[in-house]
Amino acid sequence: MPANPFRQARFATSANRLDQLPADAGVEVAFAGRSNAGKSSALNAICDQHGLARTSRTPGRTQLLNVFVLGEGQLRLIDLPGYGYAKVPEAMRAHWRGVIDAYLRTRGSLCGLVLVMDARHPLKEFDRQMLEFAAASGRACHCLLTKADKLSRGEAARTLQAVRKELAQFAPGASVQLFSAQAGTGLAEVRTLLAGWLGVATA
């Protein structure tokens, strides 16, 4: 595997329902986050590919499960629908809540969840809900505090400490780090963690 094994990631398919996903075999990691948290930018930075995950000035563009594969397709990154600011009917929101809940509970190949949160507004209701889903399904969960470059060094350190303290109380198995797609903050850390989850080597 190359120094950054995620550079080989390529788009495979989009799914509106769980039965449209690739066969439940191999290993995959899911990315979740509010619509404006910078999830697509984080995925692109991790994979060192500018346009892999589509970013938009309009939050909520990701309204399908987008599947990216590594190598022969037995290793996957799953981009879950953004939630929060998307201007969609309540029926669609309810559909995606059900799909995400079922995905986290039943997907056998899912080894972990990356929860993307804006460092300036962490642990909103959706974030807590996802942490509860992850805990209830026994999934490993790692939190990325994105847009850390928007905070001063002191503010970023205090935010990290505060989130870590809160996670210890209601989601003790979850880990957290600072991240900035723009500045490259935390890239090596999250790549190493993901490579460990997926069982791939980094140089």
Rank of each mutant, 00 (worst) to 15 (best):
R164Y: 01
L131T: 15
V116L: 09
R139V: 02
I46Q: 04
C111T: 10
L167V: 05
V190R: 06
H142G: 03
N16M: 11
Q177M: 11
P2L: 12
R57F: 02
Q161W: 06
M1F: 04
F6C: 04
D127R: 11
Y83W: 15
K87N: 09
L115Q: 14
R76M: 08
K147Y: 03
S137T: 09
L75I: 09
M130T: 08
R76A: 07
L151D: 02
A135F: 02
F6Q: 01
P5S: 04
C111A: 12
L193Q: 10
Q182I: 15
A37W: 00
L113E: 00
T202Q: 13
T58I: 11
D79R: 13
Y85D: 10
P22V: 01
A119P: 03
Y103F: 15
L77V: 12
M1Q: 02
T106S: 12
A25C: 02
R105T: 09
G71E: 03
D127M: 14
S152V: 08
S40F: 09
A203G: 09
G112V: 00
A86F: 08
C111L: 09
P89Q: 05
G154K: 12
T192N: 09
A15Q: 11
H142M: 07
D127P: 06
R10A: 10
P81C: 09
L110V: 09
R107F: 13
Q49L: 04
V116E: 00
Q63T: 10
R57M: 05
Q20F: 11
R191F: 05
I78W: 04
W96L: 05
V88R: 13
L193H: 15
V99T: 15
A53P: 08
S109Q: 06
G71D: 05
F126W: 14
Y83N: 07
E189L: 15
S35A: 11
G112S: 10
A25G: 04
N66H: 13
E155P: 00
C143K: 00
L193S: 09
L64T: 14
C111E: 10
A3F: 03
A102P: 00
S41T: 07
H95E: 12
P122D: 12
Q8M: 07
L123E: 01
C143E: 13
G138P: 05
R139I: 03
D101V: 14
S14R: 08
A32K: 05
P89D: 10
V27I: 04
F68C: 04
S14Q: 08
A195T: 06
R17W: 09
F179K: 01
C141V: 14
A23W: 05
H95Y: 12
A32N: 06
Q169I: 13
S152W: 10
A201H: 12
L110E: 08
L113P: 01
L115I: 03
A42M: 08
S152D: 14
A135I: 02
D48C: 04
G184L: 15
F133V: 05
R191S: 00
P172D: 08
P81N: 11
G73H: 02
